[in-house]
Amino acid sequence: MATIVPLSDAVADLVRDGDEVALEGNSALIPFAAAHEVIRLRPRDLTLVRMSPDLVYDQLVGAGCARKLVFSWAANPVLGVTGSLHRLQDALVNAWPAPLEIEEHSHAGMTARYVAGASGLPFGMLRGYAGTDLPQYTASVATVRCPFTGEELDAVSALNPDVAIVHAQRADKSGNVQFRGAGGMQREAVLAARRSLVTVEEIVDELSPVPDATVLPSFAVTAVAHAPGGAAPSAADGFYDRDDEAYRAWDEISRDRTRFGLWLEGIRVEGTDTV
């Protein structure tokens, strides 16, 4: 059953050196506050998993927390195809602040991996990798033959992160979680993970029914932390919109190691969550 704990305590308890960590959220409800708490605690050698790495993983990579990234697309979404993640690029090209290994998938492949992990299955299947060289270079991709039709299909190993971290609108005092808006793989990531943390905008006595909202039951969640504004600068439907100016500002901050270092020092020392 989920316990309601302060954010700093939850991150300190759940995220450990060498963990595989998934911070999910599809352009909205991205758990920035939790990610910044991870940066403050400085765990090392993390394998970061995410459908679409953007600013939050650029920051974690730049902080030296990661040794590997498992992903399907990476960019600053406000700047589109020109929106490079400069800290990620620096790690890949120059091994700064540390070398970074990458494992790339399509969105469909990552989805199949999460669904398999959430379903307690060893692998997922899709057709989208046919004709590619991914099986040659990616250990989590293989081929299987259907026992019913004989068709050869692509197989991807299940994702079962050590920790999944997501953000939601609200939870009740028992730790049941409700989130709505732009959906992603938050539910599947939590169900697939060994441990999970959900940060929320508010904690209420009882959850009210909301059309199209998803509920994660308390028994599927390890910890819930009250973190108002915890998804900013991304959006939280019903609470705040995405701060596009913060995303644009990050492009300049992250281009320069010195300027990034000043931002990082503010996160570590002052506990600011400005971007």
Rank of each mutant, 00 (worst) to 15 (best):
R194P: 00
A108L: 14
G25K: 04
A12C: 03
T3W: 08
G238M: 10
E104Y: 11
G261V: 09
G229E: 10
I4C: 09
D162E: 02
T149M: 05
R242E: 14
G80S: 12
Q59G: 02
K68W: 03
V61D: 12
L46P: 02
D212P: 00
L60I: 14
V144Y: 03
Q89K: 11
S8V: 08
P122Y: 12
T138R: 13
S174N: 09
L216F: 07
L121P: 01
V49Q: 00
V11C: 00
I30K: 07
Q89L: 15
L197S: 06
E270F: 10
I267P: 10
E202Q: 12
V93R: 15
E188D: 13
V190K: 10
Y240F: 15
L153M: 10
K173E: 15
P31M: 04
A28T: 14
C146V: 02
L100T: 09
A2R: 12
E202W: 05
S234T: 12
M51P: 03
H167P: 00
E151G: 14
M110Q: 12
L159M: 11
P228K: 09
R44P: 07
R44S: 10
T149Q: 09
E37T: 10
A246W: 02
E24K: 04
V200G: 08
S234N: 12
P209H: 13
G229A: 08
A227P: 01
L191Y: 08
T111E: 11
L197R: 06
I39R: 00
A130S: 15
R127T: 12
W96N: 03
R187S: 13
I165E: 08
R127Y: 13
R42L: 02
D212M: 10
V81Y: 12
V215L: 13
V200W: 08
D17E: 11
M1P: 11
P135D: 13
R195E: 03
V190T: 06
A139W: 04
V269G: 12
R42N: 06
A66H: 01
A12R: 13
T47I: 11
A192G: 08
R259E: 15
D154Y: 07
V275T: 04
A155P: 06
T47W: 00
G80V: 03
V156G: 07
R195T: 12
E37M: 06
P122G: 13
D205K: 10
A75R: 14
E24F: 03
I102Q: 04
V115G: 01
R145M: 13
D172W: 06
A10D: 05
A168H: 03
F219A: 05
V198G: 01
T47G: 02
P209E: 15
P135M: 10
A231H: 09
P228G: 13
A130G: 14
F123K: 09
H86V: 00
G64M: 09
D13L: 01
A168I: 12
L29W: 05
N160W: 00
V21S: 02
L41V: 05
L153Q: 05
D45I: 08
A168Y: 04
I4G: 06
D244R: 10
V198Y: 09
